[in-house]
Amino acid sequence: MTVRASAPPAAAAGRRAARRGRAGALVVALFLVGIGVAAATAAPHTEPTATTTTRTGMPSPTATDRPSTAPGADSSTALPAGQGRGALVALAALRVNDSPTRAGYQRDLFGYRAVDLDRNGCDTRNDILRRDLHDAVIKPGTHDCVVLSGMLADPYSGTTIAFTRGTRTSDDVQIDHVVALADAWSSGAAAWDPANRFRLGNDPLNLLAVSGPLNTQKSDGDAAQWLPPNVAYRCTYVARQVGVKYTYGLTVTTAERRAMAGVLAGCPDQPLPPGSTLPAPAAG
């Protein structure tokens, strides 16, 4: 492309964009050979914060009940809204375990829908529906809890789905554990106490309202086994998986890490989502 001499700002912008593209490719290449990655700055984003209580006599997890075994946990900080260090940095710090086992796994051990994170009397599914649906209609007499209908901008398909509560229609929209619970179990959660598993099972950081059929298709797959058909969402999806795994000190397989790095190659500045634990700042 020929740039006229009268438009130096455009030429400079083009050179900056080219440098960013080359830098992103270099970051991923370095990561894949284990040399290192660069930090990223997050775009502003907000997400509800929550406290927890128990509805069934189970231990009551709190914000500090997450495992303390995450890499760099002693020097990490909670993620303020609008700030972050990138998913590639956290991904590089995840420990690899290529011999995971699901022996002993039971979904109920994570207490999904058993704890009330924001003390509003609603179960986790309805809390996430209220967070993620547009134009939600709430059933009267349920203390503003039970969602009767709404519209979902489904991140996995990139389409809009109409949700209606009912025996034949509720499964059109399901709540996905972004890091599947079976995957969490085999990558570290099997060794946790119940409170930590209940926290992960109900943490909004790890939950999204999504297309029911696509959630079923994903099943217990990790990033090496399944990615959203909506390619435009894959960077955000993988960054959320990395954020969950880093925050909770979970491991990845070599194939999973390579798949995550491959996605993040297209977005090397992708931030971790708010609610994640952040890697410690680089020295200097």
Rank of each mutant, 00 (worst) to 15 (best):
T49W: 08
G188W: 09
P48E: 12
A42C: 09
P229Y: 13
G36R: 04
L200R: 01
G36D: 01
K139C: 08
A63I: 11
D123G: 02
T164Y: 04
D144K: 09
V115E: 10
L250I: 08
A39S: 15
D65R: 09
A81N: 14
T2Y: 14
A259P: 04
D154E: 05
R258D: 05
P229K: 13
V263H: 05
G141F: 12
I128A: 01
F31M: 12
A232S: 15
D127Q: 05
P274I: 06
Q174R: 03
I175M: 00
D203L: 08
G201D: 08
Y248A: 06
R119A: 14
G141R: 11
A63Y: 00
D108P: 02
V96P: 00
Y246A: 11
R257M: 10
L88P: 02
T159R: 12
D123P: 05
G212S: 00
A182R: 08
S187I: 06
A87C: 10
P273W: 13
G262F: 05
T51A: 13
S76N: 10
G158D: 11
M260W: 03
C235W: 05
V244M: 07
P268Q: 01
C145G: 07
G284L: 01
P268N: 03
A180W: 01
A42S: 15
G21D: 14
P9C: 11
K218Q: 07
I128P: 00
T254W: 07
S76D: 07
G111E: 05
A232V: 04
D118H: 03
I138D: 04
T51F: 08
V179W: 06
T53K: 08
R4F: 11
P229S: 14
P228N: 10
R4T: 14
H45E: 15
V244C: 07
T251H: 14
A224P: 09
A153S: 13
T56H: 15
V252I: 07
S276R: 09
